[in-house]
Simulated assay, not measured.
Amino acid sequence: MSQQVSAVVARSKGAPVSLETIVVPDPGPGEALVRIEACGVCHTDLHYREGGISDDFPFLLGHEAAGVVEAVGDGVTDVAPGDFVILNWRAVCGQCRACRRGRPWYCFDTHNARQRMTLTDGTELSPALGIGAFAEKTLVAAGQCTKVDPAASAAVAGLLGCGVMAGIGAAINTGGVGRGDSVAVIGCGGVGGAAIVGAKLAGAAKVIAVDIDARKLATAEKLGATHTVNSRETEVADAVRELTGGFGADVVIEAVGRPETYRQAFYARDLAGTVVLVGVPTPEMKLELPLLDVFGRGGALKSSWYGDCLPSRDFPMLIDLHLQGRLDLDAFVTETIALDEVEKAFERMHHGDVLRSVVVL
């Protein structure tokens, strides 16, 4: 039997979000019903509200979440009612060409719930990243649920569902940061801050934080940056080379998603170094680089999808590191808020006042 719950909905482009009653169906085959305990307010949710992802309004926002499985549909064996889970938006299929080649983190046919949640008038909702977790309960594909140690707080565990995983994974999985490497991170919001933490976890000797906001640079130092560069005041590539013996960083992680910051990343890396783009561009953005410079510098230019993570592998491991005191996920939670305060959280995000606001239900 379907249930009615409260949820945050974006009805039209640019309009303030509203708290609505939605209808959540019982889980069908391969699906799970999850009671949400906490959900981070991610910049991607704001992109949805602004129409930057698609125009498939109304959207059920929220995707960076943790909660407890309440019910599962036929054929579900990996999770069961009562399991504490982190939700992910790349539930691998196991059958596509990437999965068959042993690269499931690139899965090209990830799963979402087949049934749609609706408004009370029957209008179908588009769940953000196939999740829709600014809600008391949500319906997802069972593969989107990753069971983790329930000793972790939902407010911090949920952050692995998107931004923190994207940043840590950009450093460790995509960038391949190793012991003794030099790393520069351009853009020190939630994802960039997590990339700094990831570089530190991987054993980088030098982690250079780059941003235009002195507050974010101060936070970056607390997260493990060894040096900071204010790009309002200093040319980035010159500053990074000066801090790396004149060479440039081994790995440069671009966590903004703009052509001008990507160019900074490209020229701030060492010869044969790696650039990782984890910031999300908007559709109209274009990049122009001299092809001879691309050829002449060698190395690798990579994009990081969700930190190239495999949730079943990475989420439990990172939660274990957190519980051991080796990964301070609490450092990313600036504030906890109620479900009806998401719009205010978007405003604070615009002003750069938070790493993460987290809705706690």
Rank of each mutant, 00 (worst) to 15 (best):
G189W: 02
T234C: 06
S231L: 02
C99K: 08
L301F: 15
H350I: 01
I172W: 07
L33M: 11
D213Y: 07
A205P: 03
L318Q: 05
A91L: 11
E347K: 12
V276P: 00
T261P: 00
W305Y: 14
E242F: 03
K206W: 06
R348Q: 06
R103A: 15
T334C: 00
L61R: 12
C42D: 05
G180H: 08
A154M: 05
T282Y: 09
C96E: 04
C96W: 07
H351L: 15
G51T: 07
E124G: 08
L361Q: 13
V177H: 09
P58H: 08
T261L: 11
V252F: 14
A151H: 10
V210L: 07
V23R: 15
V359L: 13
W89S: 14
H47R: 15
S18V: 10
L321D: 09
C93M: 13
L60W: 05
A141I: 03
T146D: 06
H351V: 08
D26Q: 15
W305V: 13
V24Y: 14
K147Y: 02
H63C: 02
A204P: 00
C93W: 04
K302F: 09
K222A: 15
R348S: 01
L301M: 14
N88Y: 11
G325R: 14
Y306S: 11
E124C: 09
W105P: 00
V8I: 15
T21Q: 14
M117F: 00
A195C: 04
D340T: 01
H322R: 07
G352M: 09
G180S: 08
V41K: 14
I196H: 07
V34D: 02
C39I: 08
A65M: 12
E64A: 12
A80M: 12
A15E: 11
W105V: 08
A135N: 03
A338Y: 00
E288R: 11
W89K: 14
